[in-house]
Simulated assay, not measured.
Amino acid sequence: MFIRPSAFLLAAIACSPVFFGCGGKFLKAPTTAAKATTPKAEPAITAASALADAAKALAGTWRCSGSIYGADGAASPSTVTLNVSLGLDKAWLQTEFVVSSGKYKYNFNSYRTFDPSSSKWVNVIVDNLGGHAVSGSTDGIIWTGESSGPMGKMEIRDTETIVSPGEVNMFGQYSLDGRNWSTGYELSCKK
Rank of each mutant, 00 (worst) to 15 (best):
M1V: 12
I3W: 09
R4V: 03
S6W: 07
F8E: 15
L9M: 11
L9H: 10
L9V: 14
A11P: 03
A12K: 13
C22W: 12
K25W: 13
L27R: 08
K28H: 13
P30L: 09
P30I: 09
T38I: 11
P39Q: 08
A41H: 13
E42G: 07
P43G: 09
P43Y: 07
A44C: 04
T46V: 08
A47N: 14
A48V: 14
S49A: 12
S49N: 13
L51D: 05
A52M: 06
A52P: 00
A52L: 09
D53V: 06
D53R: 12
A55K: 01
K56F: 00
L58F: 04
R63E: 03
R63N: 12
R63V: 03
C64S: 08
G66N: 02
A71M: 09
A71T: 11
A74Y: 03
A75P: 03
A75M: 02
N83G: 08
V84H: 02
G87R: 12
L88W: 13
A91T: 15
A91C: 08
W92D: 02
Q94R: 14
T95M: 03
V98W: 01
V98I: 12
S100C: 01
S101R: 06
G102D: 04
K103L: 06
K105I: 04
N107E: 15
F108Y: 14
N109C: 06
N109K: 12
N109D: 12
Y111E: 03
R112S: 09
R112W: 02
F114H: 03
D115S: 11
P116T: 11
S118F: 08
K120D: 10
V122N: 14
V126P: 00
V126M: 06
H132L: 10
A133R: 04
V134A: 11
G136P: 01
T138C: 07
I141W: 05
I142F: 06
I142K: 13
T144W: 02
E146G: 10
E146H: 11
G149F: 02
G152L: 04
I156Y: 02
T159P: 01
E160C: 03
E160K: 03
E160L: 11
E160G: 04
I162F: 06
I162D: 06
V163I: 14
V163M: 08
S164L: 08
P165R: 11
G166S: 07
V168K: 01
N169L: 00
M170Q: 07
F171I: 05
G172D: 00
Q173P: 01
Y174C: 02
L176R: 07
R179S: 14
N180K: 15
G184W: 00
Y185K: 00
E186V: 04
